[in-house]
Design a protein around this nucleic acid. Structure first.
Length: 478
RNA sequence: CGGGAUAUAGCGCAGUUUGGUAGCGCGCUUCGUUCGGGACGAAGAGGCCGCAGGUUCAAAUCCUGUUAUCCCGACCA
């Protein structure tokens, strides 16, 4: 076929208008819909199915590290929210308040949780008495509300789904270990399940979470060269413990404050999947997260035996894969485009000619390559094709990130790279917030992270020229 | 929260300047022919013109207000 032919007329090409491409994909793939509630989205079955797969994959990884799931209230009394000073200052501008219960004005207003540190802390302050009660390694799956000024589907909505893990430990070392452990879980999940390569590192003081001692992050790069914080893990030290009085008696009968962590990943990651992998033909889902891994499209389905063969194939493959048979009356060509647009990794065509030869056609979403495979060993063929696609998608994402990552030695070079090339720019930083602020004002780029994998680019700060020993990833971010 | 734009059938739009019977394309329903990259014909169904006020004999159209969405900034997962 002619590769230049635009199959899906409704999708704005990425190169023309990336923001529009993004919303086109979401609408056409039926991931979510707008609702009558400002800034809140209706997550549709296909989008929610992706979230359920994310939940399953993450949750099982969490549980292997000893995490237990709980559920906390969605309301936080104002007095409770205010116990930790930095935390409340960080979140106050964007919380929603409940002021009335029925007709009655409340004595104390309640905020709708923007995050649940305070609730976990209050619970821990009562539940922890002795070192024998530690560690507490809790997580909850829930939604939170932040009163955002501008919103975009998945990337920033007023209510969003996420998980938030909150732990309490006897020692600072143990808390730090847990912080990094969970960051590694997120990184492993992104790279191996979502096929999204990430940069692991630490946030600067300016960018860290309200109330945290240290914030760690995984940063990924979208197709348009903008960065997206894809997961975070915070070490709170004993700051919250002091504010909330969370103490335990250690083996020597001494009162000690606990050390805490929190970590989260949200439906925002679905935005990353779209923007890292998608192309002008639509969404492209990594096989390990795709709600439909293979769609069976019967060809000439009115002919005797075709639908039966397709249904039999579906039943067989459903034992090991997430498979859908589309036996609707749409033409095959329509179905090809439709499932391509919705990002299904593999299409399986089966028609009279195939049935005669005991075969089916596997078509990859990545490059539309066709393979004719015998029905005798189609499970093996499909399985290896899905693995291949998963790997190809990771490789392509990595290549895109590498091609959009550069190094700057002078400030002029830095500014022009940020401005013209975009992507990540690696540069040395002295550690001062003034330089960070100036860079942001000059370029709108922010520090994404101080990566664990450091490189020595030069001896001096890209901005002020003073001695610098930290290499930082900079970039424009979502 | 500032600056700009939009809201008419499920989706995409015309109609608004100059007030006068609600339109087009796609989709949807039924029947027939089709089927290996978005098939074709015929016949149908579908609207309080975002919402609330106002002006007028008459409002999708003019005036207020309001809500939602999009784009660009500032703020944020």
């Amino acid at each position: 076929m002619d590769d230049n032919k635009k199959l899906v007329e409704e999708i704005t090409p990425m190169g023309e208008d990336f923001a529009r491409w993004y919303t086109d994909i979401i609408k056409k793939a039926q991931l979510c819909d707008y609702s009558g509630v400002r800034g809140c989205m209706v997550i549709q079955p296909y989008g929610y199915a992706i979230w359920e797969n994310i939940q399953n994959e993450l949750d099982s990884r969490f549980k292997k590290t000893g995490v237990e799931n709980v559920y906390m209230p969605m309301f936080i009394p104002e007095s409770l929210l205010q116990k930790e000073k930095d935390h409340v200052e960080g979140f106050a501008p964007e919380v929603a308040w409940v002021t009335h219960g029925g007709m009655e004005k409340l004595q104390e207003r309640l905020c709708v949780r923007p995050t649940s540190e305070t609730l976990f802390c209050e619970h821990y302050s009562g539940a922890i008495r002795s070192y024998r009660d530690l560690p507490k390694v809790y997580n909850q799956w829930c939604s939170v509300v932040r009163w955002e000024k501008t919103t975009r589907p998945f990337l920033r909505s007023m209510e969003f789904l996420w998980q938030e893990g909150h732990t309490a430990h006897a020692t600072a070392e143990e808390a730090q270990e847990r912080t990094i452990q969970m960051l590694n879980v997120y990184a492993d999940f992104c790279e191996n399940v979502l096929a999204i390569p990430v940069i692991k590192g630490q946030k600067t003081d300016k960018e860290k979470f309200a109330g945290a001692k240290e914030t760690y992050t995984i940063e990924s790069l979208m197709h348009d060269g903008k960065a997206l914080q894809s997961g975070t893990s915070h070490n709170f030290g004993d700051g919250f413990a002091q504010a909330f009085g969370i103490q335990y008696l250690d083996k020597n009968n001494e009162q000690k404050y606990v050390h805490q962590t929190s970590w989260g990943m949200s439906t925002r990651i679905i935005g990353a999947i779209i923007m890292v992998h998608g192309d002008d033909a639509g969404l492209k889902l990594p096989p390990r997260i795709a709600p439909i891994q293979a769609v069976i499209v019967p060809v000439a389905q009115h002919k005797a035996g075709v639908l039966d063969a397709a249904a039999a194939l579906r039943d067989r493959l459903s034992e090991s894969f997430r498979v859908k048979l589309d036996d609707s009356e749409k033409s095959p060509g329509w179905k090809f485009s439709e499932y391509e647009m919705r990002g299904v990794p593999v299409r399986i065509e089966i028609g009279p000619k195939d049935i005669e030869k005991n075969q089916a056609v596997l078509v990859s979403r990545v490059d539309r390559s066709k393979t004719f495979v015998s029905l005798d060993n189609i499970e093996e063929e499909l399985s290896s094709l899905l693995d291949k696609i998963q790997q190809q998608m990771y490789d392509a994402a990595l290549e895109n990130r590498e091609s959009k990552t550069s190094t700057a030695k002078t400030y002029d070079e830095f500014k022009s790279l940020i401005d013209e090339k975009g992507g990540f720019v690696k540069a040395m930083w002295c550690g001062s917030e003034e330089c960070e602020q100036k860079i942001k004002e000059d370029t709108t780029a922010t520090s994404r992270c101080i990566p664990f994998e450091q490189e020595h680019i030069s001896d001096t700060c890209i901005c002020c020229g003073k001695p610098a020993d930290k290499m930082v990833y900079w970039g424009k971010a979502y």
